[in-house]
C-alpha cells in the first residue's frame, strides 16, 4: 500500500523554498558549502546549489560535495555490512565555512549524528545547518532540521519512499505501509 504525498513539482517547489531560506539565513551565498549525504542527499544538494545559482546568477557558485557517514555509524554491527559511498569535499574544504548538510529523510537522527563526527574529521566548520526534503519525526537524538521540505508525521511501521529521477528514473515521495520488505527509514 503506497500513498503519494509529494509530486515532482512539489519536490522542486520545496527545494526552491529551501534554497531561498538558506540564502536568507546565511545572508547570501558566501562561505557556504553544501554537502549531500549519499545517495539521494547528494542529488538534492546539487539541485539546491543549482537553484541558488539561478537565484543569485552574479555570485560565485556555491561549492557542493558529498559526505558519506557509513564509517561513522553506531549501528554497523547490527545490520549486514553496508557499502560505503565516496566522500567528496570541495576544493576549499570546510574550515571557517557554513556547511549545509542535505539528506532526503530525517528520522531517528542517527545518520546526522554520524555526519557530525564525519564533518569534524574533515575540518572545523563555522556553523552546520541541516536541510531535509522530508521530516518524518521519531527522533532519537536532540537534532532538528533548519530547512524542511515537508513534515510528514508517520508511524514506525510505515516507510517513506523517496524517488528521484537521477537514481530511480521517476520522481515523487510516497508513504508505504510496511509489508515486511526493505528496512524502514
Amino acid at each position: 500500500m503506497a500513498r503519494a504525498v509529494l509530486t515532482q513539482a512539489d519536490i522542486q517547489r520545496a527545494l526552491t523554498r529551501i534554497s531561498h531560506e538558506i540564502l536568507e539565513s546565511n545572508r547570501g551565498g558566501s562561505d557556504l558549502v553544501i554537502l549531500g549525504i549519499p545517495t539521494r542527499g547528494v542529488i538534492l544538494a546539487r539541485r539546491i546549489a543549482e537553484t541558488i545559482a539561478r537565484i543569485e546568477p552574479d555570485a560565485a557558485p556555491v561549492p557542493v560535495g558529498s559526505i558519506d557517514v557509513t564509517m561513522y555509524r553506531d549501528d554497523l554491527s547490527r545490520t549486514r555490512t553496508r557499502t560505503p559511498q565516496p566522500t567528496e569535499v570541495p576544493a576549499g574544504g570546510i574550515d571557517g565555512r557554513t556547511v549545509v548538510l542535505v539528506d532526503d529523510v530525517l528520522y531517528s537522527g542517527r545518520t546526522i549524528r554520524a555526519a557530525f563526527d564525519a564533518l569534524s574529521d574533515l575540518g572545523r566548520a563555522r556553523a552546520v545547518r541541516l536541510a531535509v526534503l522530508v521530516d518524518r519525526g521519531h527522533r532519537e537524538f536532540p537534532i532538528r532540521a533548519d530547512f524542511v521540505g515537508k513534515n510528514l508525521p508517520s508511524s514506525h511501521d510505515e516507510r517513506i519512499n523517496v524517488r528521484l529521477v537521477e537514481t530511480d528514473g521517476d520522481e515523487g515521495v510516497a508513504i508505504e505501509t510496511a509489508d515486511g520488505e526493505g528496512e524502514a527509514r
Binding site: M71, Y72, P84, P86, D121, G123
Partner: peptide
C-alpha cells in the same frame, strides 16, 4: 572501498571510528 579508505589516508585526520 579501498578507494574510500585511500581518500581518508590523504586527510589530516587519518582515523575512522568504524
Amino acid at each position: 572501498i579501498a578507494e574510500d579508505m585511500a581518500a581518508v589516508q590523504e586527510r589530516e585526520v587519518k582515523k575512522l571510528p568504524t
